[in-house]
Amino acid sequence: MNTATSQSQSRARSQSWTPVIEARDLVMDYTAGMARVQADHSVTGVMPRGAGTGGPHPYAAGGTGYAMPAVHTLALNHVNFDLAPGETVAVMGPSGSGKSTLLHALAGIIRPTSGTVTFQGANLTAMSDADRTKLRRGAFGFVFQSGQLLPELPAVENIALPMMLDGADYRSATDAAMLWLERLGLRQLASQRPGEMSGGQMQRIAIARALAVQPAVVFADEPTGAL
């Protein structure tokens, strides 16, 4: 995803509101990350068939370098982004263009190679993993492409879990979850587990889970793809 001046950025220059989320000069270079891992850790495992005998392991220093695929992995290329209070922004592009990577970076799920993301003045890129997790638990709602429901839990507990992790008791969390099930026409699925649902039903449960915490920002990665 390349640098672009969005409509929200243009408005930011002409209006006095403070962005809820502000990203500046985001770069996500997976090649650089892979290179750091190779430099810091020796790679162990089974040598690929036909790698030869007597020579260096292909993943070791002096090997053939199979561990570094010759692919372009610059997912974000100096991206700037602003989100105004109450604003809805659609990020569109072909598969593999960096849409999911951008959402994950804005939500603090991944740390970009360089650049900054701030949420209500707090610098997500400078936070510890624990602090970012705590922030995501209450301030952000995320709908993943795959839903990522816990298969062991029924629908009502999948929705209630983030609220309980944030300190709510079981009764109040499940009561709130039931309200969202009713709003989405899924009350009859309250006791069913993900394996007993259709893809569209699982996706709606994931949407309910994201909204139930009353987040400041909802990140939705293809939230209606299965509907």
Score class of each variant (00 low, 15 high):
1 M>H: 05
3 T>E: 10
7 Q>I: 07
8 S>D: 07
10 S>M: 12
11 R>W: 07
13 R>N: 13
14 S>K: 12
15 Q>E: 15
15 Q>S: 14
16 S>E: 15
18 T>H: 13
19 P>W: 07
20 V>E: 08
21 I>G: 01
23 A>M: 11
26 L>Q: 06
28 M>S: 02
33 G>W: 03
39 A>Y: 05
41 H>L: 09
41 H>Y: 14
42 S>P: 08
45 G>M: 08
45 G>S: 07
47 M>W: 04
48 P>K: 03
50 G>W: 03
52 G>W: 04
55 G>R: 09
56 P>H: 14
57 H>A: 14
63 G>D: 01
65 G>I: 06
65 G>Q: 05
66 Y>W: 11
67 A>E: 08
70 A>E: 12
71 V>F: 04
73 T>K: 02
74 L>Y: 00
74 L>W: 00
76 L>F: 02
77 N>E: 09
78 H>F: 02
80 N>A: 11
81 F>M: 09
82 D>A: 10
83 L>Y: 04
91 V>L: 15
91 V>E: 02
92 M>R: 07
93 G>L: 09
98 G>H: 02
99 K>A: 02
105 A>W: 13
106 L>M: 04
106 L>V: 06
108 G>S: 05
109 I>A: 01
112 P>S: 03
112 P>C: 04
112 P>W: 06
114 S>E: 12
116 T>K: 15
117 V>L: 12
118 T>G: 10
119 F>Q: 09
119 F>P: 07
121 G>F: 14
121 G>Y: 15
122 A>F: 11
123 N>T: 15
125 T>C: 12
126 A>C: 12
126 A>W: 13
126 A>R: 15
129 D>F: 03
130 A>N: 09
134 K>L: 10
136 R>D: 03
141 G>A: 03
143 V>W: 07
145 Q>V: 03
147 G>S: 13
156 V>P: 00
166 D>V: 02
169 D>C: 02
170 Y>Q: 07
172 S>E: 10
174 T>H: 00
175 D>C: 00
175 D>R: 08
176 A>T: 11
176 A>P: 00
177 A>G: 01
180 W>Q: 05
183 R>V: 02
183 R>F: 03
185 G>Q: 10
187 R>P: 01
189 L>P: 04
192 Q>A: 15
192 Q>L: 15
193 R>F: 05
195 G>M: 10
197 M>E: 12
198 S>F: 03
198 S>I: 13
199 G>I: 10
199 G>A: 07
201 Q>H: 13
201 Q>Y: 14
204 R>E: 08
204 R>V: 04
209 R>G: 03
209 R>N: 06
210 A>R: 11
211 L>S: 12
211 L>P: 09
211 L>A: 10
215 P>L: 08
217 V>R: 14
218 V>N: 03
220 A>E: 02
221 D>M: 09
226 A>L: 11
227 L>H: 05
